[in-house]
């Protein structure tokens, strides 16, 4: 199939960018979206032109590296997928497809479609962990965890940190990401000792990074490749308010 790409091209951070058009010709319909970009890039490279810079790694939807806003949808059309799990069969012959990077103050563009998501790492650094040194653990079965709690913790922990929630939110809010980690750890008995300090520290860092505020519209949930629920955001709010009230 043949499609036309309109791609955000930006040579470096803090430099102006603009849209450029690229034809994508003779793309097999079974190819994935990123394989289509590979084909286009290989063509560009063989002509000595700079390829379209985009991030991708595992190409099976788990590492969270890839992320392109495709025709206005983070990770493109389709439910619960990452960009690398999008296939060309989702498009039609002759389509013009617009590719934009994640847009957020906290995610500066590094080049073309590549953004810097280090803000997420810094939020985790602020407290998204259980403080236990290697070697301190007791026997794994010494601490039973109710299956329901464990399952809910796992639901939240499934977050891949891709940033689609921020990209989808009209306020570029990171609440879904933060709530997933806070929920994961708050639901488990191991996470209790730092439960109050953790949520406050993570929210403080989140605010510092320049993410917007949550306005409860659930657009993050709709675009999340792992379908992390906004119920986690409610839990985050509750955890935060209780932490503020009780400490």
């Amino acid at each position: 199939m043949n499609v036309t790409l309109r791609v955000w091209k930006q040579p470096a951070p803090n430099q102006p960018g603009r849209f450029e058009s690229y034809p994508a010709k003779d793309i097999p319909a079974e190819a994935s979206f990123l394989e289509m970009l590979d084909i286009v890039n290989n063509q560009l490279e063989s002509e000595g032109k700079e390829p379209i810079a985009f991030d991708s790694d595992c190409r099976e939807g788990i590492c969270g590296t890839c992320g392109i806003v495709i025709d206005g949808r983070p990770h493109g059309p389709g439910k619960a997928i990452t960009t690398c799990q999008l296939y060309m069969r989702a498009f039609n012959e002759g389509d013009t497809i617009t590719l934009e990077p994640w847009r957020a103050k906290a995610f500066p563009v590094l080049k073309d479609l590549v953004v810097d998501r280090a803000a997420f790492d810094r939020v985790i650094q602020a407290g998204g962990y259980i403080s236990i040194n290697t070697g301190n653990a007791c026997d794994a079965n010494a601490l039973p965890v109710a299956k329901l709690d464990s399952d809910r913790a796992m639901d939240a922990a499934a977050c891949i940190g891709c940033g689609a929630c921020v990209a989808a939110c009209k306020n570029a809010s990171a609440m879904l990401f933060v709530s997933a980690k806070v929920s994961h750890l708050a639901l488990l008995p191991q996470g209790q000792p730092e439960r109050r300090t953790r949520v406050v520290a993570m929210i403080e860092q989140m605010d510092k990074e320049g993410f917007g505020n949550c306005t409860n519209e659930s657009e993050c949930e709709a675009e999340c490749p792992k379908e992390i629920s906004v119920a986690n955001i409610a839990r985050l709010n509750r955890e935060f308010l209780l932490a503020k009230l009780l400490t």
Partner: peptide, 22 residues
Amino acid sequence: ANIIDQCVAQGVPFAREYGGLL
């Protein structure tokens, strides 16, 4: 065996039985 202990202590949500054990 130590690895499993360590990971559980870190909050790795391994699959569990209804009794709460791994």
